[in-house]
Simulated scan of single mutants.
Amino acid sequence: MIKFFRNIRQRLLTENKFSKYLIYAIGEIVLVVFGILIALQINTWNDERKAQKVEDNFFYDVLLDLKKDNANLNYYKKFHTKRITYLDTLLTYVRNPNKTMGIKKFGMYTEPLFYTVAPTSYETTFESAKSMGEFNNFKEKQLVKDLSQYYADFVQLENSFSSITRFVENQFEPLMYKLPEGYMSEDTGMLVINEEDVQEFYNKVASIKDNRKITYDYEIILKTPNTENYLIGDMGRSYTALGKIITRQEVLTKLERALNKTIKR
Rank of each mutant, 00 (worst) to 15 (best):
216 Y>H: 09
196 E>W: 03
126 F>P: 00
69 D>K: 08
69 D>A: 09
138 F>Q: 08
1 M>I: 14
127 E>A: 09
150 Y>H: 04
120 T>S: 15
246 I>R: 03
131 S>T: 11
264 K>I: 12
168 V>H: 11
222 L>W: 05
136 N>V: 11
30 V>T: 10
28 E>V: 15
213 K>A: 15
31 L>C: 13
253 T>D: 11
185 S>C: 05
262 T>A: 11
71 A>E: 12
78 K>I: 03
260 N>A: 08
96 N>A: 12
38 I>D: 03
83 R>P: 00
47 D>L: 12
149 Q>W: 02
246 I>W: 02
212 R>S: 15
23 I>S: 13
34 F>C: 15
258 A>K: 03
136 N>H: 09
110 T>L: 04
247 T>R: 10
169 E>Q: 13
29 I>G: 15
93 Y>S: 00
262 T>E: 07
249 Q>G: 13
52 Q>A: 05
158 E>V: 14
154 F>S: 08
211 N>H: 14
240 T>S: 13
160 S>M: 07
141 K>S: 06
160 S>Q: 03
182 G>C: 06
191 L>F: 05
34 F>Y: 05
151 Y>L: 02
172 F>G: 00
184 M>H: 06
92 T>A: 06
231 L>F: 02
35 G>Q: 05
175 L>K: 02
145 K>M: 07
217 D>C: 09
183 Y>C: 04
220 I>A: 10
172 F>V: 04
236 G>C: 11
100 T>V: 14
94 V>S: 00
181 E>L: 07
167 F>Q: 05
87 L>A: 05
208 I>Q: 09
188 T>R: 00
48 E>L: 07
45 W>A: 06
119 P>Y: 03
265 R>T: 14
173 E>K: 15
189 G>I: 11
182 G>L: 06
118 A>T: 10
87 L>K: 03
114 F>M: 11
166 R>I: 10
259 L>M: 09
259 L>N: 02
84 I>S: 03
138 F>R: 07
197 D>S: 13
103 I>P: 01
8 I>V: 11
91 L>Q: 04
18 F>E: 13
142 Q>F: 08
142 Q>S: 12
125 T>K: 04
195 E>S: 13
250 E>F: 12
171 Q>Y: 08
56 D>H: 10
26 I>Q: 14
235 M>T: 08
159 N>V: 08
15 E>T: 10
162 S>V: 12
216 Y>K: 06
111 E>I: 07
114 F>L: 11
245 I>Y: 00
224 T>R: 03
110 T>A: 05
249 Q>L: 12
215 T>Y: 10
3 K>F: 13
106 F>W: 14
223 K>P: 04
63 L>Y: 04
230 Y>N: 00
235 M>D: 02
236 G>L: 03
226 N>A: 13
252 L>S: 14
166 R>Y: 07
15 E>R: 08
188 T>E: 03
60 Y>A: 12
219 E>N: 06
156 Q>H: 09
187 D>Q: 15
119 P>V: 01
239 Y>W: 09
15 E>M: 02
158 E>Q: 08
248 R>Q: 11
109 Y>R: 04
18 F>A: 09
186 E>T: 14
164 I>K: 00
219 E>Q: 14
21 Y>C: 09
